[in-house]
Design a protein around this nucleic acid. Sequence first.
DNA 1: TTGATTGTCAACCATATGGTTAAACTATTT
DNA 2: AAATAGTTTAACCATATGGTTGACAATCAA
Lengths: 205, 205
Amino acid sequence: MSVEKETEEKIFEAARTVFQKSGFEGARMQEIADTANINKSMLHYYYRNKDNLFFEVFKAGVKKIVPQLLAILDKDIDLKTKIGEIVEFYYLTFKEDPQLPAFIIYEMNQNTTRFKSFVKDHGIVLPQSYIDQVNTAIQAKLIKNIPPKQLLMNIVSLCLMPIVAKNMVQMLFQFDDDNFQNFLNERRQIIPEFILAGIEYKEVK
Amino acid sequence: MSVEKETEEKIFEAARTVFQKSGFEGARMQEIADTANINKSMLHYYYRNKDNLFFEVFKAGVKKIVPQLLAILDKDIDLKTKIGEIVEFYYLTFKEDPQLPAFIIYEMNQNTTRFKSFVKDHGIVLPQSYIDQVNTAIQAKLIKNIPPKQLLMNIVSLCLMPIVAKNMVQMLFQFDDDNFQNFLNERRQIIPEFILAGIEYKEVK
DNA sequence: TTGATTGTCAACCATATGGTTAAACTATTT
DNA sequence: AAATAGTTTAACCATATGGTTGACAATCAA
């Protein structure tokens, strides 16, 4: 049994690597097997077929991002802290898994169905508490008027876009990998400042 | 000769459609031929092979985005106007070609080389005039201190991310296509306001 | 120890896919 | 009108790819 888990785990890790690098269509079962150092038949023995294996990887990827974000959004903390936590969460998560967001976003565009079932199974919904929090802040004139979804879109855009468009950014800004990492690191401070100013956030004493 | 251009054009358009929908790996030469309503051999007759055809489509895509952005950045207009123009440019361009940015960004991550040659051939460089403009504005205390590349990254992120992550956004926000289009439209106003507030922009009289 | 269950592998299979070819057809030139 | 060059097509080819099979090994239950 320990052997079984080991192999299954090896396969999954290899699949994660290859699928995230090449996408569903670009990934080859043989390459996954080679990466895992096992026979190709094992892939089918444990996961039946390519779709299945892919979906496992895809699900794990979504699980790593979405529920965490929603949990932070739902927290009972003030808006400023919340924004800071989101920025930090994205920075840390994608520092160690930089290809994940591009992978998820691309594959979701290719096949919405895959994701839909996941959303239903996990009851993924934007927390009402977040919506209320923003609207309350607006009414209290603590921030300027902005639809909560638009604000969230802004936050996520600022965090994810540079990572998703990594090569484009590196090319246009003529960054090597170090420069790019510094650029991202710099954004940990710049993004929260930019957002808070953007909504004209007023501190509550 | 008119027939030739017609066929070549038909092939290119079909290739654009299919490649943008499915990506390089997911695209099938047969599907392109079917979409163009011609025999598959014609693809090879006019474009030799898949790589070639793809690269033409890819180049055209980049040409539609990058030079335009750089041209606006290089314009001798004040920062506020410039930001407004970028936001409008992106909105209008991708309203009629929504899959383009995700396509370019994804394929660029898959194969940097493809893009590198393009950048070299077209002398694509971030205009110094833009860098200077931002730095000057900072020194004049017209905006708060922010590295020009970070500011540009913010602008582009806010414009592109929702389009690139369309399905993700629609799912999470429970938008149908109309809702989504309205959401994007709403951003034409929200993004410039958000950015100008974000950099604490002061009007020059 | 032995019989059964589970895991692993090399060889194999069917099909899809990018690409080729040679012949037919069409327009253009002489 | 004949020859030439350019365009289009159906049939074909080699290979890559996802998936299967059957033999064999390891592990476990009795």
